[in-house]
Design a binder for these strands. Structure first.
Lengths: 253, 253
DNA sequence: TGTATGCGCTATGTATACAATACCGGAGAA
DNA sequence: TTCTCCGGTATTGTATACATAGCGCATACA
């Protein structure tokens, strides 16, 4: 009796979740501009859900950081400065550095390290292409995100994992976002290779229980990302690949 | 008997906020035990609000980390292990370290540093008492929290400030909590003095634009807190001062 | 006596009605 | 012409009704 898909609405996913997804898409796609107020009625007709689940979705998006509560009531789309973005990336890098340190200091079995190494090898394989193809690049983005997620898990610290997830919720702070932005740069290939070296070193450090080294390399990894994001923002080419761009404040701010 | 005759409700604060406050008190006071499911109806009669604001409050408390969503629906009080707690403190320390680094690297005017120095001096004054009185101790807790909040602000990084606030939302991770726990230790006075020395050094480092030093000392500050919290948990004396204790898992976990 | 099935209850998810407030626009007076 | 006040409208906050799904208990049958 699991599937009764011919209903008016899909009961398998709650209206709240559907509304949250739909609204996030609208924000990231730029249909709702930063600073713009979102009225509940508007959100209702965008999502098809009723006001109650829409309100729940709005609250969750606020906690997620995409919306900002207006004191007098309601929500507006949050705007981010360029510095907000680089700070967010550095923030995530710092947290991931702590995760790497925890993993190294607390010890990780070879069994647990295996998926990371597979990920590493798969990326190595992709990077042999010169220049890298579009398909390979999008595979890279997925593998890179997986690598970061696995590394985070290795810390075995639920509070830390939770916080990293929250820090990555902002679209431009996710491991994928800056890679996308980098794709516009002529030095893209070299950057990917350097990033991969960081990945290799952090695994080595964790294996050898070098906590400080594991942490340092992850922080450096984030700084590389910050630098490249800045570069990519300077020469704004192919930035349409980065949906989060819709959230960046204009120069007038 | 709270509900019956009070026809007038306080309109200055929303029902959602009032429900959130009331429920948080119930959780922290231990009236709701970790792992226990909170039914909406139960929450309704505890808070006096209707289901809609209560649901909003529950969602916010979940985001805050005090509640956990049950897959089949509803919420339960979250339970924390001792390691969860020490990790949370170290997490906050890491974030505060980054804030101190930002403040140092980006420069802070003497004008901005003034409130921090006043805070420092006020704590110095308190610590001259040997042994410290109960009243002075509770003043210390307030001043210490203020110091940490001011330091966080100095980073001038909204994303970082936001994340630190979230990390401090868990009651045992707040700057005040571990100080409370320490009060049980015979070495309390010395610990407070060492902590104060950390405060002094971080200000000095920020003034001299020594980012790495500022960061290092804040992280050490957190490690001191972790160590002392562990000590305090070993000899469980006067731990009733720490409301968050209600959230710690029993030894069976 | 044990297990399985069905029924009923309760709790959650959703929708909507109602109330209060904030914002906007127009009109009148200084 | 501008400022202020008043009223209307629109939007949010709150309450509650309704539907549905999950859970437990009881009963019946093996």
């Amino acid at each position: 009796m699991k599937a009764a898909p011919e209903r008016e609405v899909d009961r398998s996913v709650s209206q709240t979740v559907k509304a949250q997804l739909a609204l996030r898409d609208q924000i990231l796609s730029g249909a709702l501009r930063p600073g713009e107020r979102i009225s509940e009625l508007q959100a209702v007709e965008m999502t098809g859900a009723s006001r109650t689940p829409v309100r729940m979705a709005l609250v969750r998006l606020e906690e997620e950081g995409l919306l900002e509560a207006i004191p007098s009531g309601g929500f507006m789309v949050k705007a981010f400065s360029e510095r907000d973005i680089s700070d967010s990336i550095e923030l995530r890098g710092t947290l991931e550095g702590l995760a790497a340190r925890f993993a190294a200091e607390r010890g990780v079995s070879a069994r647990e390290l295996e998926p990371l190494k597979e990920c590493l090898a798969a990326i190595d394989e992709l990077l042999r292409q010169v220049p890298i193809s579009i398909e390979a690049f999008s595979s890279y983005v997925a593998l890179n995100a997986r690598f970061h997620a696995l590394l985070t898990e290795l810390s075995r610290s639920p509070p830390l994992i939770r916080q990293i997830d929250r820090a990555s919720a902002l679209p431009f702070a996710s491991p994928s976002a800056f890679v996308m932005a980098q794709s516009a740069l002529p030095e893209a290939q070299q950057i990917l290779i350097i990033g991969q070296e960081h990945h290799r070193v952090v695994i080595d450090a964790i294996e050898n229980r070098e906590g400080a080294r594991a942490e340092a390399v992850m922080r450096e990894h984030a700084r590389l990302a910050v630098r490249n994001l800045r570069l990519a923002l300077r020469n704004r080419t192919h930035l349409d690949l980065l949906p989060a761009l819709a959230l960046i404040k204009t120069a007038t701010d």
